[in-house]
């Protein structure tokens, strides 16, 4: 496949970025999207130019490190997928592909396609855990958990923290991310103990970190690579309401 690429290049958070055009030939449709960028980077290195900087690690769609806007969609044109699992067979020979970083106030650009998502870590540090010390746990089967709730909890816990929900949202809201963590823990008896404290703290922190509000557009759900649903935002709202009355 022969491709035209328009890629966002930005030196650092304080320098103005711009789109740079590249031509890339003979890409195998069996390659992944990031392998396509690897090939481009090899060409840039040969020409003594600096390669395009982006975050990635596991390349199996689970670590959540990779993420970029491709033709106006987080993680590209396929659904339920991260960039590293997107394959070039989803594009056509001769296509022009536009590649941009996540854009959100809470995720400043570091360089090119690499952004700072440490705000997500700060949110978890605020209250996204169960307060249990090592060694103090009772036998694992001592508290039965209905399969239904264990499964719903697992659905929410599948979040990989990639930030696509924030990037997709016109308000750059982190409601789906926070909703997923609140749901994951609150649906289980072990996490339910601290439900009120958790939801109040996480929502307050989310506002403080510069994430926007939720206007129920649903772009986050549509773009989430792990299929986290809006139900989790509804549950977050309900838990928040319960905690404030």
């Amino acid at each position: 496949m022969n491709l035209k690429l328009k890629i966002w290049r930005q030196r650092d958070p304080n320098t103005r970025g711009k789109f740079v055009n590249y031509k890339l030939n003979d890409i195998s449709p069996e390659s992944s999207f990031l392998e396509m960028i690897d090939v481009l980077n090899e060409e840039l290195i040969t020409k003594n130019e600096e390669p395009i900087v982006f975050d990635d690690d596991c390349r199996e769609g689970i670590c959540g490190a990779c993420g970029m806007y491709i033709n106006g969609r987080p993680h590209g044109p396929d659904s339920l997928i991260t960039v590293c699992q997107l394959h070039m067979r989803k594009f056509k020979d001769g296509d022009t592909i536009v590649i941009e970083p996540w854009r959100a106030r809470a995720f400043p650009v570091i360089r090119d396609l690499m952004v700072d998502r440490s705000a997500f870590d700060t949110l978890i540090q605020e209250a996204g855990f169960v307060s249990v010390n090592t060694g103090s746990a009772p036998d694992a089967n001592s508290i039965p958990v209905a399969k239904k709730y264990a499964d719903l909890s697992m659905d929410a816990a599948s979040c990989i923290g990639c930030g696509a929900c924030v990037a997709a949202c016109k308000n750059a809201s982190a409601m789906l991310f926070v909703g997923a963590k609140v749901s994951h823990l609150t649906l289980l008896p072990q996490g339910n103990v601290e439900a009120e404290d958790r939801v109040l703290k996480m929502v307050a922190k989310m506002d403080e970190l510069g994430f926007g509000n939720c206007t129920n557009t649903g772009a986050c759900e549509a773009e989430c690579p792990k299929g986290i649903t809006l139900t989790n935002i509804a549950r977050l709202n309900r838990e928040y309401y319960k905690a404030t009355v």
């Binding site: 103090s136 746990a137 694992a140 958990v145 264990a150």
Partner: peptide, 22 residues
């Protein structure tokens, strides 16, 4: 065995049977 106890207490959503056990 302690590891499983610890992880369940942390809220790891292990697969469960209909009766609620692991």
């Amino acid at each position: 065995n302690q590891i499983i106890d610890q992880c369940v207490a942390q809220g790891v959503p292990f697969a469960r049977e209909y009766g609620g056990t692991l």
